[in-house]
């Protein structure tokens, strides 16, 4: 049984590609054959974040146009056995992604035995974003606790309910969950940042997880190694919880409360 999952947000820069990389790696590590597809048209990012940028030969649009076979375009991750990547095209042709072509690639991936097909959506509501969500069974809506991001995510929820294959045929709705990223419990405590509860009240969808603001994210993209591969960081732990929850296990929501730092922790911690 294959699942197509879209990672979307509307707003740019909130953590879709980081989330795609970490969740895909985490699911693959747990033994499931997983592919992460970069749906951007023109700006390729997923390859960099996963550290396979120098091995990109063919991309998504090459496959759709029949210029390359899918199994040749797919890049196997060198660290995580079950993880594969289909990079984005660097073309400027915004009509390159169409439902028929995208649909064929997804069907072929399913026939190759991929259990999870994670679609990294670009920001915005143009073709790339529309195609990324079109065939989705589930959606991870990524938002920062910040006004523009939340408003844009609400808009995306509207599109997920209306502009997808499932919506058009009247099938069971896409299962949408919230991933709240760049969360700072200290700022929330001071009343300077929207809380998880605030965002859930506004968006009205279930919470998949909370990822804390962390230096580890920049460092992992610097190195081209998703944070989840180094389990010592807070971000890695948060994404691990998300992966387990996504696969159906119960995990307590950590990184939501502000842990008070006493003077000794501040000096030595």
């Amino acid at each position: 049984m294959s699942k197509v999952v879209v990672v979307t947000s509307g707003k740019g820069g909130v953590g879709k590609t980081t989330t795609t990389a970490n969740i895909a790696a985490g699911i693959a590590q747990r033994g499931h054959k997983t592919v992460a597809i970069d749906f951007d048209v023109g700006l390729r990012n997923l390859d960099l974040v996963l550290g396979c940028e120098r091995r990109v030969v063919y991309d998504f649009v090459n496959v759709i146009k029949g210029e390359a076979k899918l199994n040749v375009a797919l890049i196997r991750d060198k660290r995580v056995e079950n993880l594969h990547v289909l990079p984005a095209s660097q073309t400027r042709d915004k009509d390159a992604l169409e439902p028929e072509g995208v649909g064929k690639v997804i069907e072929e991936l399913k026939s190759m035995g991929f259990e999870y097909i994670i679609c990294d959506s670009p920001a915005g509501i143009e073709k790339g974003a529309q195609m990324a969500m079109y065939f989705a069974d589930e959606a991870i809506v990524v938002a920062n606790p910040e006004v523009s991001s939340v408003r844009d995510s609400d808009r995306m929820l509207g599109l997920l309910a209306a502009k997808t294959s499932r919506a058009e045929v009247g099938g069971t709705p896409i299962k949408s969950q919230l991933l709240l990223t760049r969360y700072s419990p200290a700022m929330v405590k001071k009343g300077e940042m929207l809380s998880v509860g605030d965002v859930l009240d506004i968006l009205g969808i279930p919470l998949l997880g909370v990822i804390p603001e962390s230096k580890a994210v920049l460092q992992s993209s610097n190195k081209g190694a998703p944070a989840i591969l180094d389990e010592s960081t807070d971000v890695a732990q948060a994404y691990l919880d998300v992966v387990y929850r996504f696969l159906g296990e119960d995990r307590e929501h950590r990184f939501v409360e502000d842990t008070k730092r006493g003077i000794f922790r501040r000096l030595f911690g």
């Binding site: 006004v147 408003r151 609400d154 300077e192 605030d198 506004i202």
Partner: peptide
């Protein structure tokens, strides 16, 4: 008023 509560009020209305 704390800025987060302003943000929440504004979001509730616009959404």
């Amino acid at each position: 008023p704390k800025s987060a509560s302003l943000a929440k009020d504004r979001l509730s209305v616009i959404v």
